[in-house]
């Protein structure tokens, strides 16, 4: 198939970027979106031009590296699909495809389609962990956990931290990501002991990083390649309210 690509090119974080057009012939319908970009890059290198820089790692939809806005959709138009798992058969011969980096204050563009997602690491460092001994793994089923709780935590733990939620949110809000981390760890007995400290630190880290506020649009849920639901945001809101009240009274008394 023949494609016309409109790709955001930006030399580095300090230079302004702009769109550039590329024509690509003979793209196999069976190739993935990233393979299609690989083909383009090989051609660009052959011509002595700089290849399009984009993030990628596992190429099997579990690492969360391939971050790009394809035709106005985070990770492209397919539901629950990362850009690396998106195949060219979902496009038509002769299509024009617009490819942009994630856009958010907290995710500055480094080069072309690569953004700096260090802000997410800051949220993880604030509360995306449990303070337990890190020796050998404990016996399986040593801590009994109800199926519903385990399912809820597992659904939230599916988050790969790709940043599509922030990219799709018109407010650049990281509520779905932060909510997923809080729901995952605050639901389980191993994480419950620190739930108040966790939710307070996560929300403060999220605000400090310059992410926007939630307006309950629901765009993040639609964009999430792991189908994480707005429930995790509601859970974080609830936990934050309770934690604030408890910390207020513990300081007072």
């Amino acid at each position: 198939m023949k494609l016309h690509l409109k790709i955001w090119r930006q030399k580095n974080a300090n230079n302004p970027g702009g769109f550039e057009g590329y024509d690509l012939d003979d793209v196999s319908e069976d190739s993935s979106f990233l393979e299609m970009l690989d083909i383009l890059n090989e051609q660009l290198v052959d011509k002595g031009q700089s290849p399009v820089a984009f993030d990628h790692d596992c190429r099997e939809g579990i690492c969360g590296m391939c971050s790009m806005m394809i035709n106005g959709h985070a990770h492209g138009p397919e539901k629950a699909t990362t850009a690396c798992q998106l195949h060219m058969r979902h496009f038509k011969d002769g299509d024009t495809i617009t490819i942009e980096p994630w856009r958010a204050k907290a995710f500055p563009v480094q080069k072309d389609l690569i953004v700096d997602r260090t802000a997410f690491d800051g949220i993880i460092q604030a509360g995306g962990f449990i303070t337990a001994r890190t020796g050998s793994a404990q016996d399986a089923n040593l801590t009994p956990i109800g199926k519903e709780v385990a399912d809820k935590a597992m659904d939230a733990a599916a988050c790969i931290g790709c940043g599509a939620c922030v990219a799709a949110c018109p407010n650049g809000s990281a509520m779905l990501f932060s909510g997923a981390k809080v729901t995952h760890l605050n639901s389980l007995p191993q994480g419950k002991a620190e739930r108040d400290r966790r939710v307070l630190s996560v929300v403060h880290a999220m605000d400090d990083a310059g992410f926007g506020n939630c307006t309950n649009y629901g765009e993040c849920q639609e964009a999430c390649p792991k189908e994480i639901k707005l429930d995790v945001i509601a859970k974080m809101n609830r936990d934050y309210a309770l934690a604030s009240v408890r910390s207020f009274f513990s300081k007072a008394g």
Binding site: G72, R103, P170, F211, Y217
Partner: peptide
């Protein structure tokens, strides 16, 4: 704060879920 958090817009963002009422609050 929301405007600050998203200083640049996309070329053509496709909103899927956000209702018109939500966007015009």
């Amino acid at each position: 704060e929301n405007r600050k958090a998203r200083p640049e817009t996309y070329e053509d963002q496709q909103l899927i879920q956000a209702s018109f009422a939500a966007r015009t609050m």
